[in-house]
């Protein structure tokens, strides 16, 4: 906000150090989209209901619309841009493409990050555990069947 008080916040974004100057009330969604130019996290509701703004903070899913930027000082932030390495897509990304798990694509990065956090924590989750972990995010186009199929194909491949 137009407060004159600003803080210098340093964090690691997709393995690169970032330094931003932000007012104390600024949310991470706006910092990433408007100051750091990361557009893959998206505004859907601004109140923690839809999950389109999901990021990983120290590997755990966080809603960037409810996260103050000052709270990620010194932390490790991951967005979907950080998943592919040297042009090679992450297996979860490949699975989403193979299984047509995106129609409009607006919610897709959030779902991919949720799944990454789950598989990093539990490499062999059950179908119910996958459903449970994806249930925080909303999709309005494809329905959830293809998203779940993509997710389960990654689990089976492990």
């Amino acid at each position: 906000m137009s407060s004159s008080k600003v803080n210098i916040i340093r964090f690691v974004l997709n393995d690169e150090p970032v330094e931003v100057l932000v007012p104390p009330t600024e949310i991470l969604l706006n910092t990433l989209r408007e100051r750091v130019n990361v557009k893959s996290i998206r505004y859907g509701c601004g109140e923690g209901s839809c999950g389109a703004c999901t990021v990983l903070v120290d590997g755990k899913p966080r809603l960037s619309c409810l996260t103050l930027t000052i709270s990620v000082d010194g932390r490790d932030v991951t967005t979907v841009e950080g998943l592919s390495k040297d042009g090679e897509l992450h297996p979860i990304q490949k699975a989403f493409i193979e299984h047509n798990a995106a129609q409009c694509g607006y919610c897709t990065p959030g779902f991919i990050l949720l799944l990454k956090a789950l598989l990093d924590r539990n490499p062999n989750p059950s179908r119910d555990e996958v459903i449970d972990s994806l249930s925080s995010n909303l999709c309005r186009c494809t329905g959830y069947k293809n998203i779940l199929e993509a997710a389960m194909s990654v689990v089976r491949r492990r």
Partner: peptide
Amino acid sequence: PNFYAQSHATGQT
């Protein structure tokens, strides 16, 4: 295949 699948999955759409 969805024409945009690649850009959706990489967040570049």
